[in-house]
Design a protein around this nucleic acid. Structure first.
Length: 462
RNA sequence: GGCUGGGUAGCAAAGCGGUUAUGCAGGGGCCUGCAAAGCCUUAUAGACCGGUUCGACUCCGGUCCCAGCCUCCA
């Protein structure tokens, strides 16, 4: 039984899909004006794990993750770069896909773009205007009238009067109430714009997600997710728009992924303390990044540091080392899978609100079982090794050949290393251990570690 | 000011009212020419103060501290 923490009820709840035939999940994706950073990586990886797990439970899962390709920051960046806006967004969409592949993220089923959903936004805005929940300000912009929506604040736990007391909301000329937010804004000269019933303009940020989720998943669907910083105001406003326009419940389960921190502070663009995925990939492989993200529960803060990434690398190395040199048939794996409870416990961990730290601890227990079984019962160890890879696939790790993982990043060619090993072994045969150790030390300088196991010397990268 | 979370051993990170989390790092041992890997073993916890309980890291109350949201942000 899958349980998910619902940000709306602030409780872990049993997950019951609206239709067991087809589960719908919508995740707020990137605004594409720059490279993705580690905060984005966390959301991408976590919802990859979540959708993989949902697919294990339900025959059909429709995973929709949007791309925001029109907004103030994109326009501003295009001007700064003196670059065509579509060239800019196209460039960063491609970069995002590259980063995703490096992290082992499977593509969503649909990846709609805001600029391709303008028509649907019109329908929604029209409907809100007809119901009197939206209005056109005297500056031409169309606004959502927050006080017309009785449940405003139900997701973020805010009440309207407290918000107003905060007084950090920006006051714009066209708004009747400072809390109102824009649905459609009039275009300034030179900005990208669309002809609309309310004049030449472009969409406000929030309306795109209401429009695109409705198009792909219907008015009422199962799961909506994103980073924790989107809960307010973005998701709150989506609820207001969708429920206001459709007169029905919008989303059953809201999921929010915690922040990536640096020195216990949120990594964010505004603080400027962010690391892009591709920067981190220069020093660590994608799977290590993924492991690092999975090492804490998705709602907890995740502290980004070289120490923690190094630790992730070591941990992953241990798991890969356990699978080294093992292979078994599917039937042998199935047979052993039934005799042990690893798979059951793995499922239970993921069923408990996607508890990836527990899931990883189970993989380590399995690795230990493999290591201690190797000598005694090779065929059992082989089968357990296959099981480890299978359970790793549940969270998208351990899918490489162990040698490919353990040997990646060497500064010498395999031939050069093998030659050194041959030299060292002939020295060892002659009991010339000082020469042998010297060769080993030289390789160690280049982070190449030798291991003499049952008469065979193998190597790996530190 | 309003609203969320959180404070666990050297570091990271979970579950749990009574039984080993797990990984990295450390100690001892086995293995090894020596190492590495692996195996066995071991130490180090639960911010603070009360309460409930036969028993609390786990429940309740209070105190202190930290982070986040209330403005674009994943």
């Amino acid at each position: 039984m899958l349980k998910i923490y619902n940000s709306l009820s602030k409780r872990k709840e049993k997950f019951h899909p609206i239709s067991a035939e087809k589960v719908g999940i919508y995740v707020c994706g990137m605004t594409v004006y720059d490279y993705c950073h580690m905060g984005h990586a966390r959301v991408l990886v976590m919802f990859d794990v979540i959708t993989r797990h949902l697919r294990r439970h339900f025959p059909q899962v429709q995973y929709v993750r949007n791309i925001t390709d029109i907004d103030d920051k994109i326009i501003q960046r295009a001007i700064e770069n003196n670059e065509d806006i579509y060239a800019l967004t196209e460039r960063f969409i491609e970069a995002m896909h590259e980063d995703e592949r490096a992290l082992g993220i499977l593509p969503p089923d649909a990846e709609p773009r805001a600029t391709q959903a303008i028509e649907q936004m019109f329908y929604m805005i029209k409907s809100l205007l007809e119901k009197g929940i939206a209005y056109q300000g005297n500056n031409g912009d169309v606004y959502y009238s927050v006080r017309k929506f009785k449940n405003y604040g139900k997701l973020s736990g805010k009440n309207i009067d407290d918000l107003e007391a905060g007084a950090r909301v920006n006051i714009e000329v066209g708004k009747k109430d400072p809390l109102d937010f824009v649905l459609w804004k009039m275009a300034k000269a030179g900005e990208p714009s669309w002809e609309s019933p309310w004049g030449e303009g472009r969409p406000g940020w929030h309306i795109e997600c209401s429009a695109m989720s409705g198009t792909h998943l219907g008015k009422h669907f199962d799961i909506h997710g994103g980073g924790m910083d989107l809960a307010f105001p973005h998701h709150e406003n989506e609820i207001a728009q969708s429920e206001g326009a459709n007169d029905c419940a919008f989303v059953n389960t809201w999921m929010h992924v915690g922040f990536v921190n640096i020195n216990d502070e949120k990594m964010s663009k505004s603080l400027g303390n962010f690391f892009t995925i591709r920067t981190v990939l220069k020093n660590y492989d994608g799977e290590t990044l993924r492991y690092f993200i999975l090492s804490s529960h998705y709602r907890s803060p995740l502290n980004f540091s070289a120490e923690n990434l190094d630790s992730a690398k070591s941990s992953l190395t241990r798991l890969y080392t356990a699978t080294r040199g093992l292979s078994a048939s599917e039937s042998a794996m199935q047979e052993v899978a039934q005799r042990f409870d690893f798979e059951t416990r793995m499922m239970a961990a993921l069923n408990d609100d996607f508890n990836t730290p527990i899931a990883l601890s189970i993989l380590f227990e399995l690795a230990k079982t493999i290591n201690s079984t190797r000598e005694k019962d090779a065929s059992k160890a082989n089968a357990l090794g296959q099981l480890l890879k299978k359970l790793g696939s549940f969270i998208g790790i351990l899918q490489l050949d162990a040698d490919d993982f353990l040997k990646q990043g060497a500064t010498l060619s395999t031939e050069q290393i093998e030659a050194k090993i041959a030299q060292r072994n002939s020295a060892r045969d002659n009991k010339d251990f000082s020469t042998a150790d010297k060769i080993r030390d030289e390789l160690s300088e280049m982070s190449i570690i030798l291991e003499d196991n049952s008469g065979v010397t193998t190597w790996r990268l530190k």
